[in-house]
Amino acid sequence: MIVLENVHKSYRLHGGTRKAVLRGVNATFSRGEAVGILGHNGAGKSTLLRLISGVEFPEAGHIRRRMSISWPLGHAAAMHYSISGADNARFVARLYGKPVAETVEFVEDFAEVGQYYRQPVRTYSSGMMSRLGIALSLAVDFDCYLLDEVVGAGDSRFALRCQAAMLERRERSTMLLVSHQAETVRAFCTTGAVLKDGRLTRYEDLDQAIAAYDAG
């Protein structure tokens, strides 16, 4: 379970003023939920995921985590560009105490980056990077996955495999997906939420969430 209590976050802009991004987010995410969080560009979707993952810290409020949580899976993060995909897999395996050889093999199979697997990550296309990122996180096997628009970024065949992997985990794990596209959310999620004006509103019914998002 993940509980957010009155979470606030603002960023300092150049010139000294601050922009409030999250103004008191309250939410509870339980095991087995697949929640689609809808928000327009700049609504604070990525910030919310960074706070939940623990990469950044809230200014006020609390985040309680009762499960292991992936890093936000997006276009590029948590990877080292100067070393190869295989070296990244070795690093992640050592870090999370997974068997190294099996992890390297799993990531190679899932990421499908071909010969690039032994090349530095900086030579990858953005699609390859996001595939590697997802493969690395699946290898660790977290309780909760944070997805940042990621599914739309890959090609459709990979999107399907990704969907299958996530659906297979849905029973035992939690998934939070942020997107500005209702279709993406519909493909993966069972319930929805809308992030607007720094606040998160949850809807039990996904269609309700999408309707509310479309309305404003």
Binding site: S53, G54, V55, I69, W71, P72, A77, A78, M79, H80, V92, L95, Y96
Partner: peptide, 9 residues
């Protein structure tokens, strides 16, 4: 900084 995406680090 990218290492900090792993909360353990």
């Amino acid at each position: 900084q990218s290492l900090l995406y792993h909360r353990r680090i």
